[in-house]
Design a protein around this nucleic acid. Structure first.
Lengths: 346, 346
DNA sequence: CTGTTAGCGCCTTCAA
DNA sequence: TTGAAGGCGCTAACAG
């Protein structure tokens, strides 16, 4: 029925072992023999049986990339960069690895299940992207999994995720970025800033918020808890949170959002409330996703080098780049000032 | 070293076959036995060997989803919906399938390589999303692959992609949508419309453009080829193309873009040229991606039910929904009129 | 309901 | 440089 390695061997008049060697290119094979084998492969339209090969070799060419939300360009951009470095078809690596994106939807259980599935497949490497959930039970469960994966020979890399002892980590400086962003606003003269934070339990949320508070504290501005609202990382949450902030304190002169998407929602809410940006209220985002430059006015935000970080994570996962000496590298964010922030109204 | 099924069997004092049956749940097993087995699995922290299981069973639990550009929400939204229906961990299906997204980057070669890799893994199903490249060599190569996959028992579904004899297809009515969009503009009084098309060789590009031309023809408006510019499906292309259109014919009163992302670029170019939207020039997009409502003014566009179509494709791929009788279902797009289009200037 | 018995297709020593 | 042979870990008949 299906063509097997043995069929190819028969046709090329060599042993199965030789065919295997030609296909894997790990052992010396005479040029003429290789020629014959490749012709047979072609004629028979042979396709290697992945499971059989993985079973015998005890490793597979599967590489998993975990993302929180595949519909969010934040993850799409990273995943794309990672995948292109992993090789996959046509990638720089030229290899034949099956780089594959798994969407956890931000759910801890799905994250664990995906890790198990990848472990099952004896994945060659796993890259986890984005912030983690701050739940000690889950954190230790993930830690266990990662250790087991690593023990089984799977390379594990974290990209844009807080460091963990079990893996190499490229971490975004969310705290520093958040701080610089708020400093910028304070520098413009703002004193009453609303802050729209992400979901409470996420590391990214906490770090960005801490940076914001650091900046407030440094400027001697009281951190009124009523000026902080939590919500999801989406536009709708930004819209609702902004209305809530305005309701709680109509005198705020700036809104700092957990990310660009949330900031867009904030802009919409402000417009719908008859407020001008930045004349009445300044707005700032985070991430510098492609669309943020198309907001009107264009969004002031913190640029994160998602593609660069992803590419590096991909190379490290493939063993084509030295991991950082300490096992942890911090990737800085860069403040990008555009039209959505200005001096507060008088 | 690693725990195997036999270890579990020994610990639970049953045969390997019984353990296998418990794990797969395909055969009746006494409750008490199952209990014992599951406990052993737990105590030993056993993880099934995917490749071995796939080899023996001649099928795997891997499901591939091919997308042209994972950083584009158009694909992200579809992929997310597909994946959630496929089950994957925690999905509705509750199953244990490894639903996985592969990024072809729009490259025909990578598309083929991914299909081969998936074939190699004996994937349970494959979903191809987005427009295809109109190259007969490539089309037949893909067709061959799809047939082979199908012959090997892999379910193949196309989502938002033109029909092919080898697979079930859910196709977007790009032509009809394009037509209604241009009709809308003509209805507003526009007679000189610029059109920014996607890459020449893509089916999506052609269909949307045909719809546009159908509408022009029906209204007796000459289709001046100088009013059509091709470019990539990104913001930058939209920007450049708009400048080019304005250069060729400053009297145009509307710009129809190949998709929303391109439309954003068009908006930026118009603004930078000192033109107001829609007072001086109307702009229309396609797809109705989430950000299109945040454009200022909000974008008139054609809404495509990406999530619904993706979910349906996922269910069909899992055999949980009847495929359309003819093997082809056309998914209509809905005209959404917002602020970016209006009557032409005097 | 459960155990026994063969492979699934390939890789990888070991010899030659 | 090539061939022979064993086994990777699991599933799927077939008995019982």
């Amino acid at each position: 029925m299906t063509v097997t390695l043995a069929d190819v061997a028969a046709r090329a008049q060599v042993s199965p072992a030789t065919v295997s060697r030609v296909l894997n290119g790990n052992y010396p094979v005479a040029a003429s023999t290789r020629e014959r084998v490749l012709r047979a492969v072609d004629e028979l339209d042979y396709v290697l049986n992945g499971p059989a090969s993985a079973l015998a070799a005890a490793t597979s060419d599967l590489v998993g990339i975990l993302v929180n939300d595949i519909a969010d360009p934040f993850f799409g951009i990273m995943a794309s960069a990672i995948q292109s470095e992993i090789g996959g078809p046509g990638g720089r690596a030229g290899g034949e690895r099956l780089a594959v994106v798994c969407n956890t939807g931000g759910s801890p259980e799905r994250e664990l299940t995906y890790l198990t599935l990848l472990q099952r497949q004896r994945a060659a490497a796993v890259v986890l992207t984005g912030g983690a959930v701050e739940d000690s039970a889950h954190a230790s469960a993930v830690g266990n999994k990662l250790r087991k994966l690593a023990d089984a020979g799977t390379r594990v890399v974290l990209c844009g995720r807080p460091p963990a002892p079990e893996a190499i980590a490229l971490t975004f400086d969310n705290r520093g970025g958040g701080q610089r962003l708020t400093e910028h606003l304070i520098g413009l003269g703002h004193r009453r800033l609303g802050y729209i934070a992400g979901p409470e339990e996420r590391t990214t949320t906490r770090h960005r918020l801490e940076g914001h508070r650091d900046a407030l504290a440094a400027a001697g501005i009281e951190d009124d808890p009523r000026r902080t609202v939590h919500g999801r990382y989406d536009r709708h949450a930004g819209y609702e949170a902004t209305l809530e902030l305005l309701h709680r304190d109509p005198s705020i002169t700036a809104v700092v959002a957990a990310n660009d998407t949330v900031a867009l929602g904030a802009c919409a809410a402000l417009r719908d409330s008859g407020l001008r940006i930045p004349d009445d209220v300044s707005v700032a985002g985070f991430d510098d996703l492609p669309f943020s430059i198309d907001a009107v006015p264009a969004l002031t935000t913190v640029h994160l080098p998602l593609a660069e970080a992803g590419a590096r994570a991909g190379r490290i996962a493939m063993g084509r780049e030295e991991p950082p000496a300490s096992g942890i590298a911090t990737v800085p964010g860069e403040l990008v000032v555009r039209g959505s922030t200005g001096a507060p109204r008088e």
